[in-house]
């Protein structure tokens, strides 16, 4: 730091604020540009029904990404979310189709069991990686297999279907064109944002992500916070599983393959640093929307499947490269 013996004036303060705003807004601008491009190049992009579609399609990834944001913020990663989603879904599906339950009881019990299943795996991930200081990459690679195997075991590899009609209908209901399922995700975004920015808990999570030892020496129980972050992620996965079932009316042990990668991509595109300590839920919301808009828009454009896959890959890389520039821009 020898080159910057900074004595900040009011002017540089304003400049820094502007940069911070620019940085957060950068993802939003990218999203707006994408929306503009697709509106101009395709016929149906901005129609009400297509907006409803995009929001529906974003929902599950958004819910998983909110949980993933907590884990990545403390410098971890959770590769098990896709498998745990399948596990939660088949557990909830089994509960929901138990004979002799009236529909609303069945749905409530199923929701609770899905969230409980997610929390169980979150606790497991968090405890193992925090207690033995094992990189969460490895631990969750293990639980990825455990959850998938458990889901197959529970169902004997069969698909569960025929959920209560009301539950089924709920999955496709909209309010002024906004899917109810997306509103659930938005509520979770709100909660996540509040917890991360307004509470002591969130502050300490950022602290741990930036500098674990400094946080520990400042008297914070790093072990507890690490487990908490993974548990929150697991709980989000449980909710994601219920949303999946409401949307598609099935629960199968082979669903959710590769969901973890989409969730990680949304979080990273949203500006959260993979090494932890930096990022926001709002960024994650925008990141998930960018992925959803891109997938939708590219199909409307009529591009081939293989081109779509390539372009999605490019966008992830471009987002991360742009993030590096944003980082430089905000360095004083």
């Amino acid at each position: 730091m020898n080159t910057s013996d900074v004595s900040q004036t009011g002017q540089t303060r304003i400049a820094t604020t502007t940069k911070t705003v620019l940085r957060e807004a950068g993802i939003g601008i990218a999203l707006i540009v994408l929306i503009l491009v697709f509106s101009m190049t395709t016929q149906h992009f901005l129609t009400a029904s297509n907006v409803t579609n995009i929001l529906t399609q974003v929902t599950i990834n958004l819910i998983l990404s909110i949980g993933m944001t907590f884990v990545i913020l403390i410098g971890g990663i959770d590769l098990s979310v896709g498998s745990v989603l399948a596990f939660c879904a088949v557990v909830a599906g089994t509960v929901m189709t138990l004979p002799g339950l009236d529909p609303s009881t069945a749905v409530i019990l199923a929701t609770l069991s899905a969230v409980a299943g997610g929390i169980f795996f979150g606790l497991l991930n968090g405890f193992i990686s925090a207690y033995w200081a094992i990189p969460s990459f490895i631990v969750t690679l293990g639980t990825l297999n455990i959850a998938r195997g458990a889901a197959l075991q529970v169902t004997n590899a069969s698909t569960i279907y025929s959920f209560p009609a009301s539950f089924n209908a709920f999955g496709s209901q909209t309010l002024y064109g906004i899917p109810l399922l997306f509103l659930i995700a938005l509520v979770l975004v709100g909660i996540g944002w509040f917890v991360l920015t307004k509470t002591v808990f969130g502050r300490v999570l950022y602290g741990i992500g930036n500098n674990e030892e400094a946080a520990r020496l400042a008297g914070h129980n790093v072990f507890f916070y690490k487990i908490a972050a993974f548990t929150i992620c697991g709980g989000a996965v449980g909710i994601g599983a219920i949303v999946y079932m409401a949307r598609l009316n099935i629960a199968s042990p082979i669903i959710g393959i590769g969901f973890e990668l989409n969730a990680i991509a949304a979080v990273i595109i949203g500006g959260t640093s993979l090494s932890g300590g930096r990022g926001s839920i709002i960024g994650t919301l925008l990141g998930a929307c960018i992925i959803g808009v891109l997938a939708n828009g590219l199909i409307l454009l009529g591009l081939s499947d293989f081109m779509r896959q390539m372009i999605t890959g490019f966008v992830i890389i471009i987002a991360v490269v742009l993030d590096k520039y944003r980082e430089r821009l905000t360095k004083v």
Binding site: H44, F45, T47, Q57, I60, L248, I255, I299, L300
Partner: peptide, 14 residues
Amino acid sequence: TEEANTLFSNMLTA
């Protein structure tokens, strides 16, 4: 299933 659901919704828009 999920991918087909997303894909077909988008096809239906187009």
